[in-house]
Design a protein around this nucleic acid. Structure first.
Lengths: 207, 207
DNA sequence: GTCTATACACCGATAGAC
DNA sequence: GTCTATCGGTGTATAGAC
């Protein structure tokens, strides 16, 4: 299977993803995107009718990727905490593998979207679907008496904070870890630390 | 003690804080700030020689406030976890009281700063000072055998993620909690949820 | 300190040739 | 699909009167 030459559209999306992730919507100009791709601005506007359309396409691409990875990795587990942890592990792998994903996901989560409700709804639904997976696993764990009766929204926020924020944290995070946030050793340790915290924090009985 | 009429400079800082917190550096124009304050653009540039200077002043103001509150609330505790928790509680109160603080703090933490090293250093040191407080408390708890031997940087990231991200989370967070993230009831519950998670997650022995 | 007026670069977006 | 050229608007920042 030979590498396929990426289409213009894909090259644009990849380039824009890096820029938007690093600096956000407003701080990135269409000219800069075009230059990096090696196109003129006009050619760029031929592929994406507006800057907002490009941005939304970039965000959707990331959410679809995260969703697909979780879907692909889904496996029936009898143990509720194992399911929660499996979700987190897959998510951490995804975020660690691509820092731009983490950055842009964090922006999507906390930035005010002054976007037309139509386009926003689609992304909101994708996001909700992603979060629902782990939310349901937690709920089932509680129902079965396996997990403490925590608040689902609060626990979701904690999990997002511990995963997405960590891999999105910029210079501050890099300073804390000596620029090695994404090294395999640090990713492994991140998993271990979060695992221990959540296992003790969520389980009713620790074996 | 009668309320003092805020100076122009203070009014500008307050106004800019709200705008920068909501939309970030690039998405806010000096014209908009000036209009909201009720000044002309030129008058605004008289008080702050550049947009970057205004932004840095806003961020510094927030960091100083957070630092001062923690300093004021500091009290000697024999118990290491109690000290950690006290720090978190004070921080949560500060963030919950002023959503703009949480937003802007999160931006400062994860946004790439293309700022001149001179100005950045000052803010970095303030930030480091704020984080060092809780980092040291955790370290002492570990040394005394009171807390599990967790990684300090990882635990800091988790704590920041659970506090700053939560109160900075925009529409997504509001959706999860029905627009009541900042209500006293939800703030109280946030504290309780984080407290339980960390107490179980960090302490060696749970009484 | 505040204003009006303006400089000038860059923005997103379009027109129209090839 | 890609280009050059250009539009109208806005961005930060400045000059100079009051």
């Amino acid at each position: 299977m030979q590498p396929i030459a990426p289409s213009s559209r894909e090259k644009i999306l990849e380039t824009a993803e890096v820029l938007f992730a690093a600096r956000g919507f407003s701080a990135v100009g269409m000219r800069e995107v075009a230059d990096r791709v090696g196109l003129s601005k006009s050619a760029l506007f031929h592929h994406f009718a507006s800057k907002l359309e490009l941005y939304l396409a970039v965000v959707e691409r990331i959410l679809v990727d995260i969703d697909a990875r979780q879907e692909a990795a889904a496996q029936p587990k009898s143990d509720a905490f194992e399911r929660v942890w499996h979700w987190i592990e897959v998510t951490i792998d995804t975020l660690a593998e691509n820092p731009s994903h983490a950055r842009l996901l964090l922006r999507t989560l906390f930035e005010e979207d002054d976007v037309a409700p139509e386009d926003e709804d689609h992304l909101d639904q994708l996001l909700a679907k992603i979060l629902r997976r782990v939310g349901q696993a937690i709920q089932e764990g509680i129902d079965r008496g396996e997990l403490r009766p925590v608040s689902i929204p609060h626990t979701l926020q904690s999990i997002v904070g511990m995963t997405v924020y960590h891999f999105a944290s910029g210079p501050v995070g890099e300073k804390l870890f000596g620029d090695e946030i994404y090294s395999s050793a640090q990713v492994r340790q991140r998993k271990e630390e979060v695992f221990q915290l959540l296992r003790r924090g969520l389980l009713v009985t620790i074996d």
